[in-house]
Design a protein around this nucleic acid. Sequence first.
DNA 1: TACCAATAGTTAGTATGACAAATATAAAAA
DNA 2: TTTTTATATTTGTCATACTAACTATTGGTA
Lengths: 149, 149
Amino acid sequence: MTQELFAKYSFLLDRTARKVKQYAQHQFKTGEFDVTVDQWLVLKNLSENELLSQTELANLVFKDHPTLTRIIDLLCKKGYVERVPHPQDRRSFQLLLTESGSAKVSALKPKILEIREKAWENLTTRDFEEFKRILDTIYQNLDCQIGEE
Amino acid sequence: MTQELFAKYSFLLDRTARKVKQYAQHQFKTGEFDVTVDQWLVLKNLSENELLSQTELANLVFKDHPTLTRIIDLLCKKGYVERVPHPQDRRSFQLLLTESGSAKVSALKPKILEIREKAWENLTTRDFEEFKRILDTIYQNLDCQIGEE
DNA sequence: TACCAATAGTTAGTATGACAAATATAAAAA
DNA sequence: TTTTTATATTTGTCATACTAACTATTGGTA
């Protein structure tokens, strides 16, 4: 039975995901990027889609609402993002990159692509396709299962 | 240039790793396992290697020392693990599973293998080999890079 | 012996992640 | 119109991750 073997995927996955984040975070720090890896993900998505609500953004980046609230708090404090009251719905905000935020995204984008490339040394486009297929399959297998007992 | 494409691996990886942990944690909670996913990883490794020091265990599970200190604190509080003073080195401890800890490992092991299988539906042994190869390559590419600027 | 660098572990601070519960507002139903 | 239900966001709590700094101890060396 290969049950035991398969069971290791969770360990390998977790270990590698942490390493990837750790490596990037270290480069971010060395380069004085002034944002964390997760804050960058949020900034990048805001630069590609303006006037999102927090809920819309949360769905894009796959983070839950409390986490996103806190990340946005920090980005606002740093002056990269603003919460603009939604004109029709007083419960929600429209998120806006400030000038400083836009400048930050432009400045960091190429550097971050370069950092991200490092992990992919010795791997091919085909590897990427396989990797993506497997990750997506795992995600699908586990998604929406919570709630049915 | 496929740079932008490759850059997505970090997002996919992080997203999937979180989903895997979240799914398992939910099952742990439903089954009243009384441990978290990370606590389980530590317990399992202790059951396979007794009398480890915290440093040795940290290397096995790829967690840093402060994180491990806290996980072990919690496992001690729950009565599953004991810190025994090292006979030759008063700085360090030997970690020991209690009877209750051993019983917990035996009880949970089969249930957790079952939970872990869910993610692997629609995927093959060959997929697993590919997956492992790619994850390990990424890990190697980024390991030991921290420190050289 | 006295100093000093290395090692084992802990503590503190900040960020993220998950979950539950609370608040405010909006929309639907009675 | 009042009540109910749903939605958007925030707050609180606990666990994990990473960094830096700290304590205690060990081992080497002058």
